[in-house]
Design a protein around this nucleic acid. Structure first.
Lengths: 256, 256
DNA sequence: CGGATATTTGAAATCTCTCAACGACAGTGG
DNA sequence: CCACTGTCGTTGAGAGATTTCAAATATCCG
């Protein structure tokens, strides 16, 4: 693996506390691999042999039941995924699929667990990382159960706006059908939800969302730090300060 | 604290791997306290000073937004809760409220984090525990997004049946309104969902659910280990084998 | 036995999904 | 260059599910 890549990995909060030797050990058998778009890396129910870390591109985590499927998260660099399954040596609960050409670091699960048992600082980092993912899911469930479709979309737009550096025009970084599934609605309904938001000062042209009047949008969305995570990428966090401020100030919260 | 209680705590997977000294250290400043029913132990957004472990009774974790509230989990002994917030030294994302008179062990968060950093085996246990909670939430989201109300109820009944030792008559262990909120529907709708299940061989009298014909119920519910967690209590697991079998055999899966 | 609370039922309103059709667009191959 | 084709997004109409409001009934507790 290239030194620059190792450097990027090393700088993740997950790996920052561990000794040099053990860092070398854990990255020893690791692969940094590039996958094309639309490839399923792992199916629901599969045994998990690697911890995955998305270095570049985009990955969708999705669940299936009874011929229906739903997007549970969309990951952006740098994010770990299926960490909990690695820790527990369990089968995957979600499928993982690339949405774009993606560069992914794969760390052998066995070595990962071994080092975790040897290095307390690392084990703490892992506990923290999983805890961050857990809290992401709590927010996700609350978002799903407490808000209706239009409210979820409005908050999605506000979250994206913060993550993209507070522009007036927010760009949807993937297909709308995927967004619809993430928000827990059909593609048709997402279309109608966008139409409803016209009354709140939103204009949509293709992937571009123009926020004409932020105030009514926020009044509808009622963003809240206990439901919305404006700071880090979707889930699988990989280290961010969990001391949120609210309302969110300008710019993205500091990343490791 | 009484020796018998310490014994129960010691036997939890979370504490089983650590040294005697550190176990004494972490339980040093711990309180074992009894709370009446209906008491809110912790509000959403509050700073978290203790790790809670439910030893007896029942606790509801719930989230609020915009004057609506939703039950996210109902805990039964023995379960940890708000562990992720403790690990991250963050504010609670969920409120915690007793549903019954409950005995709860409160461990100072500060000491907990300190010991975690000192003892790798303990830190690994914590990582495992949080991972189990995480996977519980993944199942919960899938359940919520992929199934409709009646399907969720049908699976709830099957899950309870397994947990109660596969009787023909399953008892709902709390108010129906709470169950409705847990299942993501209104109390009125839960009532109608029960009525629909009459066609699938279900009879309800008060808190008792009689399963007359299991086959059609299972055909409707389509239980699945990737969505349903028949083994442990709601969430906050506190240690269970994550190597599920399916379909579930008789009896409850082994607890620590 | 009250009186408060929980549950059930009905009816209307709202939201969401499904199905179908249409237009926009990109890539292909002639 | 242009038709052809498949995918994606939008729109409309109807069906279905869920919520809300109101009222009736049941249950629990003092």
């Amino acid at each position: 693996m290239k030194a620059a890549d190792l450097e990027r990995i090393r700088s993740l909060q997950l790996f920052s506390g561990m000794s040099e030797d053990q860092f070398n050990d854990v990255t020893q058998g690791a692969y940094l691999q590039t996958f094309p778009a639309g490839l399923t890396l792992l199916y629901e129910g599969d045994p998990v042999d690697f911890l995955y870390i998305l270095m570049d591109g985009a990955v969708e985590l999705q669940g299936t039941w009874n011929d229906k499927e739903s997007t549970l998260a969309i990951l952006r660099p740098i994010s770990t995924f299926i960490l909990a399954a690695v820790v527990l040596e369990a089968n995957a609960l979600m499928s993982a699929r690339t949405l774009e050409k993606s560069q992914i670091l794969m760390i052998p699960a066995e070595a990962f667990r071994r080092i975790m048992a040897e290095d307390a600082a690392f084990a703490v980092s892992v506990a923290r990382e999983v805890s961050g993912c857990y809290r992401g899911l709590v927010r996700s469930i609350k978002n799903q159960k407490l808000r209706n479709g239009t409210e979820r979309l409005a908050n999605y737009i506000l979250t994206q706006q913060v993550r993209q550096g507070n522009p007036d025009v927010v760009v949807i970084p993937h297909e709308k059908r995927t967004l619809a599934s993430l928000l827990g609605m059909t593609a048709e309904n997402l279309s109608r939800a966008f139409a409803q938001l016209a009354d709140y000062g939103i204009e949509v042209h293709g992937a571009e969302i123009r926020i004409l009047r932020p105030v009514p949008l926020r009044r509808l969305a009622k963003p809240n730090p206990l439901l919305d995570n404006h700071a880090p990428p979707g889930m699988g966090g990989s280290g961010k300060a969990e001391k949120e401020m609210w309302p969110p100030s300008l710019g993205m919260a500091g990343r490791a």
